[in-house]
Amino acid sequence: MKPWRKALINKHVTLVQAIEVLDKAALRIALVVDEDDKLLGTLTDGDVRRAMLKHLALNTPVSQVMNVQPKTAELSWTESRIRAVMEQYELLQLPVVDAESRVVGLANLHDILNKKRHDNPVFLMAGGFGTRLRPLTNNCPKPMLKVGDKPILEQILLNFVDAGFHRFYISTHYMPEVICEYFGNGEKWGVSIQYVHEDEPLGTGGALGLLPHEEIDQPLFMMNGDLLTSLNLHSFLEFHVTHNGVATMCVREYEHQVPYGVITSEGTQIKSMIEKPIHRFFVNAGIYLLAPALVKSVAPGTRIDMPTLLEQQIENNKVVNMFPIHEYWLDIGRMDDFNKAQDEFSSIEVIK
């Protein structure tokens, strides 16, 4: 069992504090206990995302969000029995408790079944010029700039490799030889890497038309090559598969505070005054899962951006879902983002 004590929280902890525990413990679950470690409830990734979709305040106590009747295993149970219960109820984690309901462990289905190998193709977009990061990108593609001791693109690749993915495609345009020479065919990482090259920029979605469509037989991950994130790839894939859409877009919650008092009125009469209100929106996080049919619908040479491609699907009454992410996420688009990445990288907990 992994160090499950990192996942223990009390019922007064706020949602934002619980999210920090979920991220740092990397166990995909938080165990809500009293002062004697007796189990009061559980909080999972799914519980948090449902709360986010409802726009619950981040200072909401976990007692209002947690599952108060979680399934548990007894200390005397064999691993086979634990696995059977987890499969019966489709659970990824199962708290282990003693006779007094005190938490004494946490069973993890992924550990029980060992690491699963995923055949989903992964498409990493690495063709950008990185003009806002000049002069660093004068002689180096932005995805090849180092964060820590490795290029950004390698950090992304390793996250997928560690999660069990092995089929990679990389799109190139600016200084493609630097990327191709570094990654080769992927043998160094025990994976397969193929390249598609854009002679002219085709937009964020146009490179889909250059992929070998006959090989895209499962939902395809598509991700910008300048992102650092600890996104739980397994949760993302599970969500996409179970929600039956042609695409799933990762989204982040973005807050904007109006710097003035906002007035609502009827005619000349003031009805209300709100001082510096905060508006919350979901914004595109640059990570997608796409159905094979959608990938194959993009013809070679098509110039199109991903938002436009997905808007077309929505207009045609196709289901496009969103997956709210609470994990670490940073778009390295400007120099201050790059410097921030250097400062924060060592603290990122990537969930396998």
Rank of each mutant, 00 (worst) to 15 (best):
Y260A: 15
V241E: 03
V85R: 09
V62K: 06
V65A: 05
G203F: 04
D305Q: 08
H55S: 14
S80A: 12
E200G: 04
L228Y: 06
V68L: 08
W329V: 04
A207F: 00
I170S: 08
P300W: 05
V241N: 05
K115A: 00
L310E: 06
M306C: 03
V21F: 00
V97S: 09
Y174E: 10
N321D: 10
C250I: 01
K352Y: 00
D331L: 03
G184S: 08
N67M: 09
D111W: 10
V147K: 14
K6H: 06
A99C: 01
V21K: 13
H279V: 05
G267D: 06
L109Q: 10
Y174L: 04
E35Y: 03
L58G: 03
A7P: 13
Y89T: 12
S80P: 02
E215N: 15
S192R: 14
L53D: 05
F239H: 14
G127N: 07
K115V: 00
G186D: 07
Q93W: 03
L113F: 00
V262R: 15
S272R: 15
R83C: 01
R102D: 05
Y328Q: 05
C140E: 12
C180I: 10
D36Q: 15
E187A: 15
Q69H: 15
G186H: 07
L202A: 02
T172W: 02
V97F: 01
F165H: 13
G184R: 14
N108L: 01
S80G: 09
D98L: 09
L136H: 09
M273A: 02
H118V: 12
N120H: 14
D47A: 11
S272A: 12
M273W: 01
L228F: 00
I82C: 01
P292T: 06
Q312G: 11
Y328P: 03
Q342V: 04
R81I: 08
T131N: 15
E344M: 13
P141C: 02
D34Y: 04
M223Y: 02
L124K: 13
V65Q: 04
I9M: 06
D343K: 15
N185A: 07
V97H: 10
V68T: 15
V68P: 05
V350Q: 07
E255C: 13
E215T: 15
M144H: 04
V48A: 14
V21T: 14
A57Q: 12
L113V: 10
A99R: 14
S63K: 14
I29W: 09
S171T: 12
S76F: 02
